[in-house]
Design a protein around this nucleic acid. Structure first.
Lengths: 220, 220
DNA sequence: AACCGCTTGTGAACGCAGGAACAAAGTCGC
DNA sequence: GCGACTTTGTTCCTGCGTTCACAAGCGGTT
């Protein structure tokens, strides 16, 4: 009757839950039945206290003095993240990166299924990738409607990414993963996550050069 | 004489500076000479005040009442991020994703150059990608030493990622970009950034399902 | 030359995530 | 059956990042 579990789980926690889920799967494959928060935290690269706090969002799911049951915890996290049901995704832009993603087996095992691969180039249409044929971009709306795809992945050149994004949003896609090097504008109710590989490299480069700087800048 | 500029720029700010840099390049190509913080912020998808605070880490570089000079600001950010000098990178794991990255032209224009592509599979060795031949993994240490590569990119299967990471760190690589779905352990002084595509999708999926939940969970 | 509008740069408050410390609770040994 | 140990779940606190709001400064105009 009571609803003590707040509906809102911080986004940072959700991201870590996905990591825990993967570690737990590895442990389960290894035959482990229980884990302590300390061990899980080490494997996931986080602080033990933070891990327990993350897990507390799911309600009590450990045994004091023992730890967490691997199978139970894995199922619980999986249920919260919604891994049990397969989610249809569409992928637009079948270049090198798009092909790699379409062919990546890791998505299927985590509940994501590509139900449509689209490209504008006639040269790529009909090509088979990951057991699926590339379709012309014109069929995008029809496929989204027919499959009720809720997630769209954009791996097009930056110049057309916004146009693709607009079409996806208009067709009913509400979550977009953007690999194109542009910032997308979307209507309310549509989530965008951006993966920018150049930015990642530049941050790394800056941190690397900054690591040497203090020795020079601080003569005292 | 004074050193009012603190050497430490927040990591979140560095990531946004890279985004601003790209927007500024686009504006410069379009012939624009000045921009206001509001316009830049809109294009970058951030808050105008936050953008100004980010830029304040570089010292005063705008003109009140007018805005920022596009070329000047672009050069300034580029200098802080260290874009002017090319940075040698090595890439380990030439599968679909690795091939896509090796072939991506966007890196070269931003100061990153792959000086070595490595794989363990004999079938891939010698294959030419992006004008470069794939080398056997045994040559990793020699190439890192010879080229002074400071950045390593890991696109191997998860099972061997830690071993590759150890070898990179031992060879002197101090910045690692990890695409493998595992959490890497590294010695102090080595930075790791992780890009986990499955986690991104799972966060999107969770946000999407959470968007519908409140309407059900709150009957009042 | 003085005024006015516009934009930057900065100071302060708010909210959130992360980390450390502590109490509750369950198990193992005697 | 009882005590001590281990580990969870929670609470407090500190620090960072973000946002709002205002004063300072520059250009254009009269």
């Amino acid at each position: 009757m009571i609803q003590p579990r707040p509906r809102t789980i911080p986004e940072a926690t959700v991201a870590r839950l996905a990591v825990y889920l993967r570690v737990l799967s590895t442990l389960a494959d290894g035959g482990r039945s229980t884990v302590s928060s300390g061990e899980l935290a080490t494997a996931a690269g986080v602080n033990p206290a933070g891990l327990r706090k993350d897990l507390s969002h799911l309600g009590p799911c450990g045994v004091r003095g023992v730890g967490y049951e691997v199978d139970t915890l894995r199922d619980r996290i999986g249920r919260v993240l919604g891994v049990e049901r397969s989610r249809p995704c569409v992928l637009v832009g079948i270049g090198n990166l798009g092909s790699a993603l379409a062919d990546y087996a890791g998505f299927g095992s985590r509940g994501f299924e590509f139900v449509g691969l689209f490209d504008a180039s006639p040269a790529r249409i009909g090509q088979r990738i990951g057991g699926q044929a590339v379709r012309p971009i014109d069929e995008l709306e029809a496929v989204v409607t027919a499959t009720q795809a809720s997630i769209g992945v954009i791996t097009t050149p930056g110049a057309v990414a916004q146009a693709v994004c607009d079409r996806l949003a208009a067709a009913g896609v509400r979550s977009i993963l953007n690999f194109a090097p542009v910032t997308l504008a979307t209507p309310d109710g549509v989530d965008v996550r951006k993966v920018d590989l150049s930015v990642e490299l530049q941050v790394l480069a800056f941190l690397g050069q900054q690591r040497l700087a203090p020795a020079i800048g601080e003569p005292a």
